[in-house]
Each structure stands twice: as C-alpha cells, then as structure tokens.
Design a protein around this nucleic acid. Structure first.
Lengths: 227, 227
DNA sequence: GGGCCTATCTATAAATG
DNA sequence: TCATTTATAGATAGGCC
C-alpha cells in the first residue's frame, strides 16, 4: 500500500524513517483500537522511537493490562516484584530494629534509675552491681584524666618557674649591661662633650641598647611551646 | 478493507468475532513487527481475548520493554508502585532506626562504664552524676522493697507468735479437758465398774473426747489466711 | 534558523469481510 | 478466495522548542 512496494528493512533516510514511524505508529494504534472494540479484547501497545521517546496505546489502563499480563505469564512465584520483596524485607527489618530499640531503651532506663517497678530485688541488686562497676570505671577514668591533667599542669608550672628564673637572670643581666652602657655613655659624653657640644651621637647609642633584648626572645618562645 | 465496509463496534456474532480476532490480531502483530524493523523502534503488544487468553508481540524481550516503559513513565511520582513506595519508606525507616540504635548503644556503653575514651572530663563528670543518681534510685528502690519485705516478715512473725500463743493455750486447755475427762472417766469407771464390770461405756466416752479438738481447728485456719 | 515531530495529499499496496 | 476497503509510501508543509 502506498505509491510503491517497499522492502521491510530499516529505512536509512532519517527523515523518511521519522515520517514513516509517525504514520505507521498511528496506524498500529488505530488497528489496536479497532481490534479491542470489534473483538472485545484487551489490547496494549508500547512503542519506543529510536531516540527513546515512548508512545502507548491501551484500551484499558496500561498498568492494569501489564499487571494482568504478568499474572498470566508467571505461574512461577517470581510474580513478586523486586520492590515488593524489598518492601517485605525492610518492613521486617524495621520491626526487628524497633524491638531492639525497645530493649535497649528499657535497659537504658534501668541504668538511668527509671522504670524500676518491673524489677524484683534480685534484679535490682544486679543492676546496682552493674552501676557500681560503671561508676567505678567512670571515676577511675576521670581520676586518670584529672591526674594526667594535673601532671601536665605541674610540668607546666615547673617550666614556667624555670622560665621565670631565666627571665629574672636576663633582667639582672640587662640592668647590668644597661648600667655599663649608661656608665660608658656618661664617660663618652663627658669626653666628647668638650669637642662636639651640639652632636646627636648619644641618641644612636640609646637606640642600640633598646635592640639588645630581642636577641633573647626567640629561645624564650620556643621553651613556651614545649610546655 | 474487505468485501464491505464495517462499523467499528463489537461484532455480536461469536464465530465472526472469533475469526476477525484471529485475523486482526495477526495483522496487528505484523504491523508491529514492520514498524519495529522499518523504523528501528522497540515495539511490544499485549492482547487478551474475551476468554482471557493472552497473545503478545515484542521485537525485544517483553519484560525489558515493560521495565523500560515503567522507567520512562515514572517521572511522575504516582507511577511508583505501592510496593516501591513501601520499600523506600521502610528502607529509610531502617536507616533511622539503625542510627537510633547506634546512639542508644553508645549511651548504654557509657552507662555501663565502657567506651569512655571518647569522653572528656566534663562529660565524665556528667556521666558520673547520672550514674550516682541512678544508683541512688536503685538503692532507694531496693531499700524500699527490702523494707517492705521486712515489714511483711515482721507482720508474719507477729502473727505466727500470736498463733503460737493461741496454740499453746489450746494445748493447755486440751490437756486440762483431757485431764478432766480422764479424771471423770476414772471417776465414772470407778463408780460404774462396780455395777457394770463387762460394760463398753468407757469406749464411747473416749470417742467423744477425740472429737472435741476439731471444734477449734476452724478459727485457727482462718487466722492463718489473714496473715 | 534547524532539528524533530506531525498533518495533508494522492496513488497504490495490503488487509480483510 | 478475492473484491473492496484501508493503510500507507512519497512528497511536502506546518508547528514547536
């Protein structure tokens, strides 16, 4: 049917193929519709184009027809979909997990000293023993940590004391050096004063004295970081 | 196409409908095949006859085409099957529950005095406080229960002592009654002996003495039940 | 504009009553 | 089977993103 006879093989011309696809698809769906109506049949067609677009016909709902098809073709128990199996699995999992939580919650409450009414004296004694054990561990751990912290603080204290001693010795030395410089300056001043009454030399000497302490600051900082 | 034009409506004649169904079904599948080949398309058709028999065409595998169709049409969220939604729901639920368990487990371990390395001194102090609180509650509860038990035992002790006193008084009375009886019997014996040397009268008197204590057993049992 | 899809027209092949 | 209806090849134009 058509202007000429065609061979049933893939149409290479893109445009032609596209047009034929559109026409024949409509033709197919029309035939499907007629079949369903004339013969009181349930018909469903699914068509994917080359580019993956989907077209469909179903005189009934596609989903129900597919389900019916699956029912009809699978007497085997694989009718259950992967999703259904998943749902069942996770549903059971949730149930178990909830039970676990219930148990843990109960234990937890007992360990927190709540909900004790359901326990008898023997169970209360066991719980007490457990809590004593726990508290002793916690205390031991706390003790260790505080001890470690104390030790660390003591170490730091000793370091700081050493540093203190060092600083004091530096100050003493500085004062000594400063005294020397002042003395020397005084002597120089007296000597030079007679020759250069308007000179600013004394200022330069004061500047060099101020720089001197910074030579010690580096080792001092290092010692602090170790502490 | 045929000897005459037909209206597209259900063919009422059973045989005609059957024949047309067969012909048009084959025609549909042929068209589907040609479409798939000519246009390089993926085509699937499902046909159910009135009597529920299934016929199908698929140039590819029917299952994969259906899956692909479901994938393609499930951009809309309502396409997800109930099972799929369930699966997702329970999957998330399980995940959450597992996290909860993880947390509770951690808390639990801490309350049991395990896994303390991750805690700092402050947290350890809090934990200690919690445990102290818990243990004091447990001890209080235990104390209450032991106290209640002790009270109950003391009550029972008192009851038993009372019962004891009662029993002793009964025994004393019994002995007295018995003595009287024996005395009476002795006196009677002596008196009657002289008149009826072969009489069995003394045996009847002994029997009435044996029945006497049972009159007291009822109130005794009642007192026990109250205790 | 350009790619992609569909509609229309007509002669003819194909389906089918 | 086969006369006749129907589908559709081929060409082209229109609509949409």
């Amino acid at each position: 049917m058509g202007r000429g006879k065609i061979e049933i093989k893939k149409i290479e011309n893109n445009t032609n193929r596209q047009v034929t696809f559109c026409k024949r698809r409509n033709g197919l769906f029309k035939k499907a519709y007629e079949l369903s109506l004339l013969c009181d049949a349930e018909v469903a067609c699914i068509v994917f184009s080359t580019r993956g677009r989907v077209y469909e016909f179903a005189n009934n709902h596609m989903k129900s027809t597919i389900d019916k098809y699956k029912m009809a073709t699978s007497n085997a128990p694989n009718t259950n979909s992967v999703q259904e199996i998943n749902a069942q699995f996770y549903q059971q999992e949730s149930k178990k997990l909830r039970q676990q939580i219930q148990m843990r919650q109960s234990t937890n409450r007992h360990l927190m000293g709540d909900g004790l009414d359901s326990l008898n004296v023997k169970e209360l004694k066991q719980l007490e023993t457990r809590l004593e054990k726990a508290i002793s561990r916690v205390r031991s751990k706390k003790h260790d940590m505080i001890l470690a912290e104390t030790e660390s603080l003591q170490k730091r204290e000793i370091e700081l004391e050493h540093y203190n001693v060092f600083l004091r010795s530096k100050i003493t030395e500085n004062e000594r050096v400063q005294q020397h410089a002042v003395d020397a300056a005084g002597q120089q001043y007296n000597a030079i004063e007679e020759y250069l009454a308007r000179s600013a030399l004394q200022l330069n000497i004061m500047g060099s004295l101020e720089d001197t302490p910074s030579a010690y600051s580096l080792p001092i900082n290092k010692s602090l970081h170790l502490g």
